[in-house]
């Protein structure tokens, strides 16, 4: 054996080892496991949270049954209930839908379908992005000074502007920017070819939008809007400022016209009740708060699942 071939065999051996690497690769699976654990931690938190809330609410369901849902607020924890909050939250959501949905969709249509890339357009887009980042409690300040004080108590001369409409307007402003952004994304996902085909046969911009772009984008707009509304449903910080009542109050007598309820009566919302109950020192309120949270989460769950099912149905219809 010559020195030369021996040398090359050594080199070959070194090369083979260097290429194959260590036999057992520990680092790779370790990193993968660490990463997976950090994701599973979120799952664990979610499970513990839900389990904790449901477990703490059990005594209330067993002792009180449905009365904890259907009773009015009462200073006595054994008799109190959350129906006023559920009613308030539903009414607020209706107001938010009526106001922010058309406004948000219209603004998004303008930005996506009409606007050219000018300085003004860029200002509008930047402004909407910033609005989406403003903390929700700051919207509460807007609601307090503009809707409660300036418009309702000032211009309209009401004794108290802390009514459903003030809360609804405040939440609408909060939701508006998010509504615009989700609708923009939905419109952007519509293929350009659809618009071009429509323009090609002589349709005007509005005809194109009305008959071709919106129908295709509608499932995504619908889902985005409902998810946004679900956020508004769970929102409470702005309502603290826009006049939701924390303590107990008498519900308006039966048969009060709906306009009076919206414009003139006190209101509260389900998340506000959760906030107020969670601050109470009495032991009974721990379980009561948990029960209110379960009610809130169940409502959100039903709405979200319903939306996803409805979207799938819409998409199937569109495809046919």
């Amino acid at each position: 054996m010559t020195a030369r071939t021996m040398g090359s065999r050594v080199t070959q051996e070194m090369l083979r080892r260097a290429l194959e690497g260590r036999r057992v690769n520990i680092v790779n699976p370790l990193v993968a496991l660490t990463l997976l654990i950090s994701l599973l931690a979120s799952l664990a938190i979610l499970v513990v949270l839900l389990w904790d809330v449901v477990a703490k609410s059990m005594p209330v369901w067993q002792e009180r049954g449905w009365s904890v849902i259907t009773n009015d607020l009462s200073p006595r924890p054994a008799e109190t209930g959350m129906i006023q909050g559920i009613f308030g939250s539903v009414m607020l959501t209706v107001i938010v839908v009526v106001l922010s949905f058309p406004l948000g969709v219209a603004a998004a249509i303008y930005l996506e379908e009409y606007a050219r890339d000018t300085r003004i357009t860029r200002l509008l887009v930047a402004n909407i992005r910033n609005l989406a980042g403003v903390p929700s409690i700051v919207y509460g300040l807007l609601g307090l000074s503009v809707f409660v004080k300036l418009i309702l108590e000032g211009v309209l001369g009401q004794i108290s502007g802390r009514t459903l409409i003030a809360g609804g307007l405040t939440l609408s402003m909060l939701v508006l920017s998010i509504m615009v952004i989700t609708t923009q994304e939905a419109l952007r996902a519509v293929p350009l070819a659809i618009r071009e085909a429509s323009f090609g046969v002589g349709a005007t911009p509005w005809q194109t939008i009305r008959h071709h772009v919106l129908p295709v984008a509608s499932p995504a707009i619908f889902t985005g809007s409902v998810l946004t509304l679900a956020r508004a449903f769970g929102e409470s910080a702005p309502l603290l400022l826009a006049g939701a009542v924390l303590s107990t109050f008498f519900a308006a007598p039966e048969g009060t016209p709906i306009t009076d309820l919206v414009l003139g009566e006190k209101y509260t919302a389900l998340p506000i009740i959760i906030y107020n109950w969670s601050r109470q020192p009495q032991q009974e309120y721990i379980a009561l708060t948990a029960a209110a949270i379960v009610a809130l989460l169940v409502i959100l769950l039903v709405v979200n699942t319903g939306t996803i099912l409805a979207r799938d149905a819409l998409e199937r219809r569109n495809r046919m």
């Binding site: 949270l49 809330v53 769970g234 409470s236 708060t289 989460l297 959100l300």
Partner: peptide, 9 residues
């Protein structure tokens, strides 16, 4: 999607 009041509690 969990509202912040829930996390507060």
């Amino acid at each position: 999607g969990i509202p912040s009041v829930v996390l507060g509690y």
